[in-house]
C-alpha cells in the first residue's frame, strides 16, 4: 500500500508573543520565542491519521529544519505516525519556498512509494501557503488546497471539502495528490500514553552512543535523517540561499507604538464626552 507523507514545520510561536519575547522598544525578540508544531500541520497530521485509521496506510512525517525539529517528529510519533524523517543540512539553509519545496519533493521521492502528501495550509512564521502547492508541482501531483473536511477515501481518489471562500466545494481528487489542510478540518488527537512510552527515547542516529545503537535499532527508536548527500538527483545550484529566486532585501521590526491616543473616563461624564466626540466623528463620516 502506498505511503502518506505529512509535511510539518517547527515554528516560533508567533501567535502568543508576550513577556520576555518583547524587547523594550516594543519589537519581538525572535530568539526568545518558544517553538511549536505549526498549528495547521497538526490538522494535516490528523487528516493523515484518519486515513490511516480507515485504510491502514503508513503515515510518515517529514520535516526540514535544524536538529531541534526532532521534537515535532516525536510529537507525531506520540500521536500515531509510523515514522518521521528529519531533513537537515547546512546546504539547505536560507531556502525560500521554491527551494524548500524542491528539497521536500526530492526527499519524498527518496522515501519512495508515496501517492498522498498532506501539508498544512500555511506556516505561522511566514504565512505564505506556498510550500504545499509547490511540492505538488514538483512531484507532478494533483492538488486540493484549503481542505476543510475529509469525506471518502479509496485507492484511487480522495473526496474532500474545500473552502472556496464564497462556497464549499466537494471535490473527488485523483491520486497521486497533495492536500493542504486548514484548522477547520478537524481537532488533532492527543498523544497516546502508550506511544509516549514507546518513543520517548527516540533520537537521530548521530546522537546515539555507539554502544546503544543496537538497542535503539531493535526498539525502533532511531529517527532517520536525510541530508544533501542522500538526495541523489538534487541540483545544488537550486537550493539554499543561492538557489532561491526570492531574496530578503530588508527587514523592519514593527513596534507596537503609542499614537496620539485620547482617553476617556469610564464614568458617566467620560462616556458622555466620548459619545459627543463620536457624534462629531460620525457627522464627518457621513458627509
Amino acid at each position: 500500500m502506498s505511503k502518506i507523507v505529512v509535511l510539518a514545520k517547527q515554528v516560533p510561536d508567533t501567535a502568543n508573543i508576550r513577556g520576555n519575547a518583547m524587547k523594550e522598544d516594543g519589537t519581538v525578540n525572535r530568539a526568545a520565542l518558544p517553538t511549536v508544531f505549526n498549528p495547521e500541520d497538526l490538522n494535516a497530521l490528523e487528516t493523515a491519521l484518519q486515513i490511516k485509521d480507515r485504510t491502514g496506510r503508513e503515515v510518515i512525517l517529514l520535516t526540514m529544519g535544524p536538529y531541534k525539529a526532532v521534537e515535532i517528529i516525536k510529537q507525531a510519533l506520540y500521536m500515531g505516525a509510523d515514522a518521521g524523517y528529519l531533513l537537515t543540512d547546512k546546504k539547505f539553509a536560507g531556502s525560500d519556498t521554491w527551494a524548500t519545496s524542491y528539497i521536500l519533493a526530492e526527499a519524498i521521492k527518496k522515501i519512495g512509494g508515496v501517492d498522498l502528501v498532506v501539508a498544512g495550509r500555511q506556516a505561522i512564521d511566514g504565512d505564505t501557503a506556498q510550500v504545499g502547492p509547490q511540492v505538488a508541482e514538483k512531484l507532478n501531483f494533483n492538488q486540493v488546497t484549503y481542505v476543510t473536511a475529509l469525506n471518502d477515501v479509496t485507492d484511487k481518489a480522495i473526496t474532500v471539502e474545500r473552502d472556496g471562500e464564497f462556497q464549499t466545494e466537494v471535490i473527488k481528487a485523483r491520486l497521486p495528490l497533495l492536500l493542504t489542510v486548514t484548522s477547520a478540518a478537524n481537532t488533532p488527537r492527543y498523544p497516546s500514553a502508550r506511544n509516549m512510552l514507546r518513543y520517548f527515547k527516540a533520537d537521530i542516529k548521530e546522537n546515539i552512543p555507539a554502544e546503544k545503537r543496537a538497542e535503539y535499532e531493535r526498539n525502533g527508536w532511531v529517527i532517520p535523517t536525510l541530508t544533501f548527500a542522500d538526495l541523489k538527483d538534487i541540483n545544488e545550484a537550486q537550493i539554499g540561499l543561492k538557489g532561491s529566486p526570492t531574496k530578503v532585501n530588508a527587514i523592519r521590526d514593527i513596534a507596537v507604538q503609542g499614537g496620539d491616543l485620547k482617553m476617556y473616563d469610564p464614568q458617566l461624564d467620560g462616556v458622555k464626552a466620548l459619545v459627543r466626540d463620536l457624534m462629531k466623528q460620525y457627522v464627518e463620516v457621513q458627509s
Binding site: T97, Q130, P133, K138, Q143, D163, G164, Q238, S244
Partner: peptide
C-alpha cells in the same frame, strides 16, 4: 491572495522557477 490565487500562483512560480511573494 484569494483561495484561487493562492492555489494557482505557487504552482505557476514553481513550474517557471521564479519567485513569488505572498500577501
Amino acid at each position: 491572495a484569494t483561495h484561487t490565487g493562492r492555489d494557482i500562483a505557487p504552482l505557476v512560480a514553481a513550474q517557471i522557477y521564479t519567485g513569488l511573494t505572498a500577501d
